[in-house]
Structure formats: structure tokens, C-alpha cells
Write a protein that binds this DNA or RNA. Structure first.
Lengths: 154, 154
DNA sequence: AGCATACGTAACATATGAAGTTTCATGAGA
DNA sequence: TCTCATGAAACTTCATATGTTACGTATGCT
């Protein structure tokens, strides 16, 4: 199955919003992400419920960041997305009666649990501010320009 | 997305075969796994190519283990399955021009790479013999019986 | 008030891949 | 020769992320 890119996508959106003082419409964001405005709204819905972003209707409306980037981690964002599955593999059954399968599940399950825990730990250790800082570092390294142009096709 | 259970399934099959001196048919294995014989053959195809198992047609035919369980790791089996994707998440694009997305990709990519490496490391550290030993331990702990009955519905 | 803008949501279409199924060919043994 | 079992192709089913259309609703400008 194609890999889920919602976390990647929503982070992209958030960093763009962080560079933009005014509200950004779903359509602007969709253009930057080369996708559909409705997809953006879907991604942002969970974040709005948690108060990480804010949306305004009508003229001059759109999406604004409503949190301190230093206080929100990728784990918070991941949870706001509904905690999509992390691993593409899993055990065949949950609580098998077969002892053979129990042995298999125990071995694989340990590995799976560790991998998931590692990912969540990494997510929790990264703030949006850290991501933004990395972006600005790349920007300075590349052009030294203060222009916030982010090199999208548009 | 439903999680890929091929590794879990094929390990289950192998351990059952290890308890069975005679060849086991796809149909017997399918019954134990509550699935279809063709699914079993698909799973086993890659393992046969690598010489981990052997198949015989006709009367008295079926599948036999053709390797030293102590010499084959879960990583070998994983590779024989064609190295199915491990993570359900990924970056939206591979080599984005957008610096924002580059920053996101770098952060997430590191975490993803680490998680994958952890899984492969764990797979490589576990032999089929270790799994089998764990099974026998569970068997002794549960019944103390030498009966190899593995508690499948049948 | 009336109109344009932009989100909110439902409904539907598309694409991908694992898993399940059917069918037939092939080869091995009784 | 007949039966058993694998090998392989083709098809269906199912789940889910993603894409798209359409319409309702709220906001703000004129």
C-alpha cells in the first residue's frame, strides 16, 4: 500500500503558515502542496480541534497558527491527525490459541512495539520550532537571502 | 490500511513444518492458518527459491524445511518475501525543491530510517531455531505434554 | 441587502496492494 | 491411467489514503 504521507504533508503546511503572517487559504496551501483544498481542510481539521491552528471564513479568512511552535511537538501533531498506523506489518492474529503463533507473535510483537516506541519518542523530541529553525538554516546556507520564497513551482 | 501479515504468517507455517517430520501440503498448512492453499504457495515461493524450503509434487508431496533452523534468521525470511515495506508512513515527496519540505523530510526521514534499521536489526538477531525454542518452552510450561498438538481449531 | 469569499462536510471516484478464490497446466507416484 | 499436489495466471474482495465535486454556512466587503 502507498505510504501514508499525512504527517509529512501537514508539517509542510504548518511550516509554510509559520512563514506567513496573514491567514493562508486552503487553496493557497493546496497549490503549494500540489493537491486539493479539501485535502488540506481534512488534514487541518484535527489540528483545529486541538487549538494548534485556527480557521476563519469569509474575506481575508484562511488558516493561522494558534500555538507556540516551541511548545508543540511532532507527536502532538501526529495525535491530532488521529494517530495513523505507523507500521506496515503486523501480526496475523491478536490472541491466537496456537502456541506456535503465540511464539511468533511474541518475537515479532516485541520488535514492532520497539519500533513504534522509537518513532513516537523521536516525534515527541522534535518541536515545530526545531523544524522551522532547520528550515531557516537551510535558507541561509542556500541563498543568504531574507526572501522567504520557498521555491514552489508557482 | 490493513497491516501486512506475510512475515507473521510464513513464520507460523515454518514452525509448524519444523514440528512435522513428513512433508505438509499447502492444504494442511492453509487449514492451520485458516486461509487458502494458494496463499500458502505464494508465501512459500520466495523461500523455495532461496532453498529454505523444498516442495514435492504428487502423492506424499508437500513442503519440507530444507535448511538449518539455527542458520536462518527472520531477516533472511523477510528478504525471501521480497522485503515488503516496513513503515506505514513516509515522506510526501522524495527530493523536493521546497526548502520547507526538505527540512520536514530530513527530520522525519531520520526517524523513519532509524525505525527501519531497528526492525531489520531485530529480525537479523532472531533465528528460526530461537523461535522454535520459544515455542517448546511455552509448550512445556503449559501442558508438560510431549504431544505436539498445537491447538488449532481442527 | 446582496454578493463574493472561504471554510465544513458529505458523497463519490481513484489508486494501490494484501488477501482470498477459481481455474488449469504440470509433474510425481500408486 | 488415475489421483494428488504444486505452479502459475487471472480475477475478486477489501481497506484506506488520496483526489474531486457539490453544496451548505458563516464572514466581511460594497
Amino acid at each position: 500500500m502507498r505510504r501514508d504521507s499525512r504527517l509529512s504533508g501537514v508539517l509542510h503546511v504548518l511550516l509554510h503558515m509559520a512563514e506567513h503572517p496573514d491567514p493562508m487559504t486552503s487553496e493557497m496551501l493546496a497549490r503549494a502542496m500540489d493537491t486539493n483544498p479539501v485535502v488540506i481542510r481534512r488534514l487541518m481539521g484535527g489540528l483545529r480541534e486541538r487549538g494548534f491552528v485556527q480557521s476563519e471564513k469569509g474575506h481575508g479568512g484562511g488558516w493561522t497558527i494558534a500555538c507556540d511552535l516551541r511548545a508543540v511537538t511532532l507527536l502532538d501533531i501526529y495525535e491530532a491527525l488521529g494517530q495513523p498506523g505507523l507500521l506496515a506489518m503486523g501480526n496475523r492474529t491478536e490472541a491466537p490459541g496456537c502456541l506456535v503463533e503465540q511464539a511468533v507473535n511474541a518475537a515479532l510483537g516485541d520488535a514492532f512495539d520497539e519500533a513504534e516506541a522509537l518513532l513516537l519518542r523521536r516525534f515527541g523530541a522534535l518541536t515545530l520550532a526545531a523544524l522551522s529553525a532547520d528550515f531557516h538554516e537551510r535558507l541561509a546556507r542556500r541563498g543568504g537571502s531574507t526572501d522567504l520564497e520557498t521555491n514552489h513551482a508557482a
